[in-house]
């Protein structure tokens, strides 16, 4: 029997053009062909690596120092990745040292917007998308009083509440690695919260998700965020009340969502 006879191709392979779902994979018996099996493993490996890899914070810090806004390096209370994955409560709180760092750096009269970059559930997302997004976003934020840029590790979305509150920020924006999908290991999410304070609930946040070249491109993400930030500051709110009221945000990628990181 020749190797090609061991595999049965599915005759409906032409349907693949309609979806990215893994359809018409063919089969060996009732099992996957070898190339499909290995393709799945490779995708899962990339996703696992994105979750477990430590963020290359030093390189990122270099890039974040360039705009000259000041930089705070922060950590949550999670001591390890394993603890981070099992204790979201600890990932939402700053360690004592980070609190002191931030208190020393806080502008005395507060700021309009604090921006936090955080590893979350995908270091790869932050390493690939965070600096390009900042570069696109900062020029749009001209005219706003920005706090020092913050780089936080082992962080959950709600860590931004404590950070924003310590900096006296009217609003806080956190750019954070999203839970990786099999075909999207490097997707960045951005969560905006007006009047951040510990204990803020998710319906008070706006989210722009799936920020990556193959998802929501950097430039579109930056303009959506710029719109959200300005509207939030102008109207004094974020979350459910700030939903796509002008149709400016498109439908699928900007939603008020449950916290996913």
């Amino acid at each position: 029997m020749s190797p090609t006879e061991l595999r049965v191709e599915d005759s409906w392979a032409s349907l693949r053009r309609y979806t990215d779902a893994r359809i018409a994979l063919g089969r060996a018996g009732a099992s996957l062909p070898t190339r499909e099996l290995l393709g799945f493993r490779l995708a899962h490996a990339a996703a696992r690596d994105a979750v477990l890899a430590e963020l290359d914070a030093d390189s990122l810090a270099q890039g974040m120092a360039e705009p000259g806004l000041g930089l705070a390096r922060l950590r949550s209370r999670c001591g390890s990745k394993a603890e981070y994955l099992q204790r979201p409560d600890l990932g939402r709180r700053l360690c004592d040292q980070s609190r002191s760092t931030l208190e020393a750096l806080a502008p005395s009269s507060g700021c309009d917007l604090a921006i936090v970059v955080a590893d979350g559930l995908s270091s790869a997302a932050v390493e690939r998308q965070a600096l390009p997004l900042l570069s696109a976003l900062l020029p749009l934020a001209a005219g706003l009083k920005l706090g020092p840029l913050c780089l936080a590790t082992r962080a959950r979305v709600a860590l931004s509440d404590e950070i924003g509150s310590l900096l006296g920020a009217k609003a806080v924006l956190i750019l954070i690695g999203e839970r990786p999908g099999l075909s999207s290991p490097d997707s960045l999410g951005a969560y905006l919260t007006f009047e951040p304070s510990p204990g803020t609930t998710d319906e008070r946040r706006n989210c722009v998700s799936n920020i990556r070249p193959a998802g929501l491109p950097i430039a579109s993400a930056a303009s959506k965020l710029d719109y959200l930030v300005r509207e939030s500051l102008r109207r004094g709110l974020s979350g459910v009340g700030l939903k796509d009221e002008q149709g400016a945000l498109g439908t699928s990628s900007t939603l008020v969502v449950e916290e996913r990181v």
């Binding site: 893994r22 359809i23 799945f40 995708a43 999908g181």
Partner: peptide, 20 residues
């Protein structure tokens, strides 16, 4: 399809798994 839900971003059982 292929155990990979491209909307919900998680892995479940595939059509192959069911047949198997």
């Amino acid at each position: 399809p292929g155990a990979d839900d491209i909307m919900l971003n998680y892995q479940s059982t595939s059509f192959h798994d069911g047949l198997n």
